[in-house]
Design a protein around this nucleic acid. Structure first.
Lengths: 122, 122
DNA sequence: CCCAGCACTTACAAAATAGTCAGTACTGGA
DNA sequence: TCCAGTACTGACTATTTTGTAAGTGCTGGG
């Protein structure tokens, strides 16, 4: 990379949103601050380790903010920063699209799985 | 997974867009059909193998269409299907956001890199 | 005639990503 | 007292994803 910038904007977004669960985390935080355990339950199938790892990265990137209530046992919440909120807004059309094409996409994925069965993929 | 559907739309999108270069491929195809070699030059840094692999997956998923001109030496083009075009539209806000926050994101990534140097990440 | 280019394929290696499992320091409830 | 839950760390493994490098059959240009 010669410059610090990106070729198409999308690459920039991808640099922030890279990570299986990050878009989901942002999505769930869009409806308000949440505690760690709450997020773990909302973001289905995420392991505690990955959640926390992504949370940390998003915090470092200034997308979310960590609020430590300084209590014992621990009480921590995460919320979107303004930056994160603006990013969350760009996620919305995708989310709508996904919801709208839900069944179709499910069919595609099913197809993919059965094709895999036939040609021996995992 | 109990049902065939997704919890939040976003997951559905992610099922289609999973793969480092897929959003970029779709983005570049949004401006019209392209030949394989052309895409390889447009999607910076993509290896031929990954490009073709993702192209194949996107084709299987019905996002793009492969047009074989049945010529020798080969001439093949790819273009978005209607489905793909509708997906490309949802990418646009992200792309704008990325373009708009370009410098800021570049700074974040730089920060990440130097933090990595300090704490020993790759 | 040789070499570059086309659109691929394959085998293999490396790296990124994800996951499990145990442990920490602490508290409140059964 | 014991167990569950809180937020989190670290060691270790597994899986997935990506990359590298070579080869294929064919043609047109130098």
């Amino acid at each position: 990379m010669t410059t610090t910038n990106f070729r198409c904007g999308l690459e920039a977004v991808l640099a922030i949103l890279g990570g299986k669960w990050k878009p989901l985390i942002i999505y769930h935080l869009a409806s308000g601050p949440k505690r760690t355990g709450q997020l773990r339950r909302l973001v289905t199938n995420v392991s505690e380790k990955m959640l926390i790892q992504h949370l940390k990265e998003l915090t470092d990137d200034g997308v979310i903010r960590r609020i430590d209530f300084q209590k014992i046992p621990p009480h921590v919440e995460y919320e979107l920063t303004d930056f994160g909120r603006s990013l969350a807004l760009t996620l919305a059309p995708m989310c709508d699209w996904g919801t709208h094409h839900d069944g179709q996409i499910a069919a595609i994925v099913r197809n993919r799985t059965s094709a895999a069965k036939v040609d021996g993929r995992a």
